[in-house]
Design a protein around this nucleic acid. Structure first.
Length: 276
DNA sequence: CGGGCGGCCTGGAGGC
DNA sequence: TGCCTCCAGGCCGCCC
């Protein structure tokens, strides 16, 4: 589900409410996520620790705890993390609950169980197998068109998959890849070997503006995304390409022109009249 | 080594 | 109403 904007929206909503809060305990109801939750280690690491910071790396939410421990959460496709009053009854697929000193609970719900939760010393994050290969953050000032151009050297695959490759740039998932290519008028099947410097600059710029606008609008809620307070996003009404198969192109105005194709098993949406 | 594909899971939508 | 198929925002590991 969530790409960079959704995780960032979640982080911003939780930050003021979780800072300084102490985790009194954790209940792992269903440890069998795609990668099993290391239950005992998690309980040992987080119990009694105060939240001292919330960060994001790629699509991971990082909750820093006193004593140098970091709680790592990934929402996968259907994960949701919400802060609720203590008396709130559990809902279906509520796999993990963090009990807070204030009496509130931070609960993790994930029907498809593609999410991930684990803990580790903060200094081990960079070298961890889930993080070691990750590329640059889109909002890092060092992220430029030239970064993309250099990453593309020696490659010839389609630009859509390239944008979704987290070892190139992190945070761009299936929705925003289509949106970025629509904004820059690049055909999703175009080989990265055939993209000019100028176009790479436009792509880097579009990655930042599309993700930035999505964050400003609370993320994209197609189905179940919410922030930590349960608020839905509304960027879905601003999507120009994704999910609009058969509808009119907002740029050229041609009725029914938005097309859906499948690349590497994922849907891509684009306007064949505008994107080349 | 780059890149395509299957698999991991459940649920919702739509066709018949 | 019920059954079946397809599809879904991520990511890894296995192939060629």
């Amino acid at each position: 589900m969530p790409e960079l904007p959704e995780v960032e929206v979640l982080r911003r909503s939780l930050e003021p409410r979780l800072m300084g809060e102490t985790i009194e305990g954790v209940t792992v109801r269903v440890p069998a996520l795609r990668e099993p939750i290391p239950k005992a280690r998690l309980a040992r690491d987080v119990t009694g620790r105060q939240v001292v910071g919330l960060r994001r790396r790629a699509k991971y939410l990082l909750i820093d705890l006193a004593g140098g421990i970091t709680l790592v959460l990934h929402l996968g496709m259907s994960g949701r993390l919400t802060l609720v009053p203590g008396e709130t009854p559990p809902e279906a697929h509520e796999h993990v609950v963090f009990h807070l000193a204030s009496g509130r609970r931070l609960r993790f719900r994930d029907p498809r169980r593609f999410g991930q939760i684990f803990s580790l010393p903060g200094e081990e994050i960079a070298g961890h197998r889930r993080f070691a290969h990750l590329g640059i953050e889109p909002f890092d000032p060092a992220f430029t068109g030239d970064c993309l151009r250099r990453s593309a050297l020696g490659r010839r695959g389609p630009v859509k998959a390239f944008l979704m490759d987290a070892s190139v740039v992190v945070g761009v998932g299936n929705i925003y890849a289509s949106e970025v290519l629509f904004q820059t008028r690049i055909h999703p099947r175009r080989s990265v070997a055939r993209i000019s410097r100028q176009r790479w600059e436009a792509v880097a710029e579009a990655v930042r503006t599309v993700l930035g606008e999505a964050i400003a609008e609370g993320g994209t809620t197609l189905n179940d995304f919410t922030d930590g307070e349960g608020n839905r996003g509304y960027f879905q009404v601003s999507l120009a390409a994704y999910g609009r198969e058969g509808e009119a192109c907002h740029r050229c105005g041609e009725g029914g022109s938005i097309r859906r194709i499948v690349q590497a098993g994922r849907s891509t949406f684009y306007c064949p009249r505008c994107q080349h």
